[in-house]
Design a protein around this nucleic acid. Structure first.
Length: 874
RNA sequence: GCCGAAGUGGUGGAACUGGUAUACACGACGGAUUCAAAAUCCGUUGCUCUCACGGGCAUGUGGGUUCGACUCCCACCUUCGGCACCA
């Protein structure tokens, strides 16, 4: 079968009748209609049935589905179908994460309305998803931009506001001075605005925040409960929350009233402080900049960088001496205070004590600005000196040059110094978190409006529930410049709900992470039209048993959703502490990139292959094959799932996706691998059709045959059931398919025997029946069809998962490997109940082993039961 | 820069708890079938020495632990993801 996926060929134009050949197009359309017409996947809250909530991350409706979606949803559907066959009541919903920037960008570019663009994309993508044959309960579908969802989200916002979990504060954003607009980090390219090309500035704006830091401790400790999550995601969240124990204390500043509070985790190095550094946004820095033009210039320079941590960290370390001197709390020494471009205002107090001898950043800074380096921790057996040090020493050791603290182990000293601070009344031991409060304000049009009004006399007034939702204006001018809601001629003009005076609406909209923080709760009661959530129905399904989505969401979405869920718990809307019991993070889909010297990035269909080399279809120039990268439109290294589904069918597409790599790993796209999946489904088709035609009068086998070859075959069948079940349970979907492939391979010689007897045929019949069940979660349509071929009624989707026959799994013989000094030298085939002594003797007498023992004496014999014998000789 | 992963034949991957390295699939080569092609079926296929029997070497690199290491420990290299306004 050589049907390229990218060249637009549709191979099923002419075909013989269905029972003869596998024709996915007709079969898949047929079963999708059947499932839909009979509401096979619609679920209700049934009290007596065990529930299983399978959630996949809902897509952003960008236009068309991509391979990443296909992979995510193939994995999700596999688990949903498997759990359904295990007898569970499975909730498997789908919806749309529909607010966001791309709709606004499209609106600017194509002069459409973001809403029209979004809903039209949803219609397209819904059809695409339906063509995959996914077992969703579509009756629960919604888009987060639906007036209904936005309405209930505003209600939730106000509930949390009332609870005191939301506040307003100044914060810095990326500002494009030409377009007069806030830029997302991804819109900042090399420090410049993506549209205007103007250098980006940091600008302070008043913004809304969620008090996620109030939950920092609980978010951290509950990570321990998440044992169904990948260890890597748990570690990433732990590091993100970043709990640290340290000391907060204040320096007095020479000749000034106010003090300089700093936070440090290295109180043990207190005597090594030779300077202090403060962030450019620090009040002290701002104050100095007002009167000192040089300082102002440096502060401006610092603020001419994006707000991302990455941008700040990658800067060359620079500082400006404020001329102020801090007084060391213990020695009374004076040390300079620098404004430094690498100190973050958002962490701790925005000021740090600097110890160049024991902190690498401080070390580099001190070298650049010729600041003394004072060693206060000596590692055992070495004597470091500030003059000769080549890098900061951050390891353990004993305190030195530290007066009253000399001789103390540095770990112990962290406490001793903290206690000294407390005794002097100038500082105290504190716990600090790296986690910052969640900024939810966005200065954009296509988002959910924050439902408050600003009144000149009453201040911030929430919109009363009866006046909700606050809707976006239909008429809007999107130019990419300014905040569209703020610039709108009338929208923000309103009256104060409290005093009735003229007032203005809040023009910020909510971060789209808001919508994805509770969509899984709304699925439980999507038809509810009187409140955001129905607690009884939510409790019926929650928590999510299995969540499946991309690893790129490991921190932000998954942390925000955990926080939001806990906040809703505390306002009495949900019961459980954690929303997602198990998490599967799938890897990305990647493909090589093709570039033409003339035309740049090329799509797979714009490239032709000749004698193993690739050429541009337009100009004939040789194509250079670039690195394997995440599929993305910008690099043109995409394969359209629609072409794949049209060409091979959804079953092949899904099977390939699940076979090509384990789910958590990146998947490398490979056209010929798809051919392999296609061929396998055809082999299965022929096997079942053949077996069906030969076993009309024969029932599937139910017990072990006498013939050794048949016995082996039936054992293989039941071992396959056990293996596939185990593999799906441990989420090793690729090896599950391999096991079924092995079974089909092993059955094929028996199938070719045209004179096979009744017993053989009954086993082949059993194999056909079981293979269909085992493969159903991978390739649902073909298995439904083949079940009919075998004469069954009903839906495989609603059948029970097969069980392995314990009698068929009993082994009578085993193969034991014999090693000499760890090297493989022979093999023994023995009865399964052979005892150790006999095995040792047999091993040492084995003809292939004896030569390797010659002239040596056996020192030790290691026997691993059922596996191997290692003879240690020398 | 910081945090988190991954590296196994020509290719995707398997080896689950430290115990037969390379299951399964792709590709390649040879054969059967065919007027021919497609499709299908059968066989070979880590590298290397050897007519053969058989041996040696191989899991990114370098060390270590162990009777035994893809698996555990240390260091390094390369690639990928996240870094708070992309979703």
């Amino acid at each position: 079968m050589h049907q390229g996926t990218g060249n637009g060929q549709i191979p099923f134009a002419v075909r013989t009748p269905m029972t003869e050949k596998y024709t996915p197009r007709t079969i898949e359309a047929k079963w999708q209609t059947e499932w839909e017409n009979n509401s096979v996947f619609k679920v209700e809250e049934t009290p007596d049935k065990e529930t299983f909530y399978l959630l996949v991350m809902f897509p952003y409706p960008s236009g068309r589905i991509h391979m990443g979606h296909v992979r995510n949803y193939a994995i999700g559907d596999l688990i949903a179908r498997y759990q359904r066959m295990q007898g569970k009541n499975v909730l498997h919903p789908m919806g749309w994460d529909a607010f966001g920037m791309p709709a606004e960008n499209a609106a600017i570019k194509q002069n459409t309305h973001p809403g029209d663009w979004t809903y039209s994309n949803i219609d397209t993508m819904r059809e695409e998803l339906k063509s995959m044959g996914l077992s969703y309960d579509w009756s629960r579908e919604f888009a987060t931009c639906d007036p209904d969802y936005a309405h209930w989200e505003q209600v939730l916002f106000l509930k949390l506001h009332e609870k005191g979990l939301i506040y307003r504060e100044m914060s810095h954003v990326n500002w494009d001075p030409v377009d007069q607009t806030v830029l997302a980090n991804e819109q900042v390219i090399d420090g410049k605005g993506w549209r205007s090309g103007a250098p980006v500035e940091r600008k302070a704006l008043s913004q809304w925040f969620f008090r996620i830091t109030d939950y920092a401790e609980e978010l951290l400790t509950d990570i321990e409960k998440l044992d169904g999550w990948p260890e890597t995601v748990r570690t990433m969240q732990t590091n993100w929350i970043g709990k640290s124990h340290g000391v907060e204390f204040s320096f007095t500043i020479k000749g000034r009233e106010e003090r300089l509070p700093v936070y440090t985790t290295r109180a043990d190095t207190i005597m090594g402080v030779t300077f202090c550094s403060i962030a450019s946004e620090h009040p002290l820095a701002v104050e100095i900049a007002e009167t000192n033009p040089e300082a102002a210039a440096f502060v401006r320079e610092c603020q001419a960088t994006g707000t991302s941590e990455e941008a700040v960290e990658k800067l060359e370390k620079k500082g400006f001496d404020t001329g102020l001197r801090a007084i060391h709390p213990f020695t009374g020494e004076e040390v300079p205070i620098f404004i430094a471009n690498f100190v973050l205002m958002g962490y701790g107090t925005g000021a740090v004590m600097a110890v160049p001898a024991h902190d690498q950043r401080d070390f580099e800074f001190a070298k650049a600005y010729e600041i003394p380096i004072k060693v206060v921790i000596q590692p055992e057996g070495e004597t470091l000196s500030g003059e000769t040090l080549e890098a900061a020493y951050t390891g353990p050791g004993t305190l030195t040059n530290s007066r009253q603290f000399d001789g103390i182990d540095n770990e112990a000293a962290k406490r001793t110094v903290a206690e000294a601070f407390e005794a002097e009344g100038i500082g105290k031991a504190t716990v600090n978190f790296r986690l910052r409060d969640w900024g939810v304000s966005r200065q954009r049009y296509w988002g959910n409006p924050i439902p408050v009004v600003h009144c000149p006399s009453c201040g911030v007034v929430p919109v009363p529930e009866s006046d909700l939702p606050v809707s976006l204006p239909k008429e809007v001018e999107l130019t990419g410049s300014g905040n569209p809601l703020d610039r709108h001629p009338t929208w923000k003009q309103t009256t104060c709900p409290s005093c009735g005076a003229d007032a203005v609406r809040e023009t910020d909209t909510m971060d789209t992470f808001m919508e994805s923080s509770w969509y899984f709760l709304r699925y439980c009661c999507a038809d509810l039209n009187s409140a955001p959530l129905d607690r009884a129905r939510v409790d019926h399904w929650m928590p999510v048993n299995q969540y499946v989505g991309g690893i790129e969401h490991a921190v932000l979405h998954l942390l925000y959703a955990r926080f939001f869920h806990k906040a809703l718990r505390d306002v009495g809307l949900v019961s459980c502490d954690e929303p997602f019991t198990k998490l599967l993070t799938q890897g990305m889909v990647r493909k090589d990139t093709h570039t033409c010297p003339e035309h740049g990035w090329r799509y797979p269909s714009e490239v032709k292959e000749e004698r193993g080399r690739l050429f541009c279809i337009e100009c004939g120039a040789e194509i250079s094959v670039g690195r394997n990268e995440k599929m993305s439109k910008s690099k043109h290294n995409v394969v359209d799932p629609n072409d794949l589904i049209k060409g091979y069918g959804a079953d092949t597409a899904r099977l390939f996706m699940l076979f090509a790599a384990p789910p958590e790993r990146d998947l490398e796209w490979n056209d010929s691998g798809v051919d392999g999946a296609w061929r396998f489904l055809n082999r299965l088709w022929r096997l079942v059709v053949d077996v069906a035609s030969r076993t009309e009068e024969i029932a599937p086998a139910t017990e072990m045959p006498k013939d050794p070859a048949l016995k082996k075959l039936r054992s293989k069948l039941h071992a396959t059931i056990a293996k596939v079940t185990e593999d799906i349970e441990r989420q090793s979907f690729n090896t599950g398919i391999a096991a079924v492939m092995e079974l089909v391979n092993e059955a094929s010689p028996f199938l070719q025997n045209k004179k096979a007897d009744t017993i053989t045929l009954s086993i082949l019949r059993e194999i056909a029946e079981v293979a269909i069940l085992l493969l159903h979660p991978y390739s649902p349509h073909i298995t439904e069809e083949l079940s009919r071929t075998l004469g069954h009624t009903g839906y495989v989707s609603q059948k029970a998962w097969p069980r392995a026959d314990a009698k068929a799994l009993v082994k009578e013989e085993m193969t034991i490997v014999v090693q000499v000094n760890g090297k493989l030298r022979g093999r023994l085939t023995v009865a399964a109940d052979t005892d150790q002594k006999t095995l040792e003797t047999l091993a040492q007498e084995d003809a292939k082993v004896v030569p390797h023992l010659e002239g040596k004496s056996v020192r030790k014999v290691i026997v691993v039961p059922g596996r191997l014998i290692n003879i240690v000789a020398g």
